[in-house]
Design a protein around this nucleic acid. Structure first.
Lengths: 118, 118
DNA sequence: ATACTATATGATTATAAGTGAATATAATCA
DNA sequence: TGATTATATTCACTTATAATCATATAGTAT
């Protein structure tokens, strides 16, 4: 049952934090690793689970894979909007993650820029 | 994190079916057993999990324990209303369960009446 | 009191899920 | 080409979850 898989995907703190990071746009795996301070294999696995559940989609751009929220699942299950827009903002760790993401982007540490260093 | 526990509680077919049965009012454990055709201990455990997550509350009335949706959790997490009111109706097994519940009630098989049989 | 009913809980087993380390694959760079 | 980077996948391990059977508890009926 598809909706059960949705709930299973949401029922994990790391995946919820990932979905929270993606609420303002797409990110590549390494940015998520850095901001959440988790291992690469772990990030990849959780992203795959969110993807299989239909919550996010991916797009490969040269060597990076960008993940973003899947608009179609939100049309199909409108309650997900309520979670993303209303609930994540109430959770401390999610707010902190957004702050860390902002700093991470500002610091020039994201992967495209990392490549350009000496 | 409370919201993760909510998703975990929802991320199980049996518990989702129980919550669906409770959407129109309270039920005792034995009615849930009968309608879902699950074992008593199984029903009791799933009900406890929904209760610990805050989704339902219980009230003991003589020998029966009645469970019902917890209004407070719905106020706190409005997206839950969307799930109960909009999503369950789209799921075949949930619709079938409501039908079985109706028949069960009509058949006089619910526990209070059972006691009164010869 | 005894028997019965409804519910909860303990013990056990089976299955699923999460993690880290190492490896594989594919793209890019020098 | 060889080295490097980003991502995915496999393996081994550990923990969490679900189902079942048996038993405990509490209320009711006779």
């Amino acid at each position: 049952m598809e909706i059960i898989q949705l709930f299973k995907a949401l029922a994990d703190e790391t995946r919820m934090r990932i979905l929270n990071l993606l609420k303002n746009g797409e990110l590549c795996v390494c940015d998520i690793e850095d901001v959440l301070d988790i291992q690469q294999s772990n990030a990849s696995r959780h992203l795959n689970k969110l993807k299989v559940a239909g919550l996010i989609i991916s797009a490969k751009k040269s060597q990076w894979v960008y993940y973003r929220v899947n608009d179609e699942i939100i049309i199909k299950y409108p309650f997900i909007i309520g979670i993303i827009n209303d609930e994540f903002g109430k959770i401390n760790i999610c707010e902190d993650d957004i702050e860390r993401l902002t700093q991470h982007k500002a610091s020039g540490a994201s992967c495209e820029k990392r490549m350009k260093r000496p």
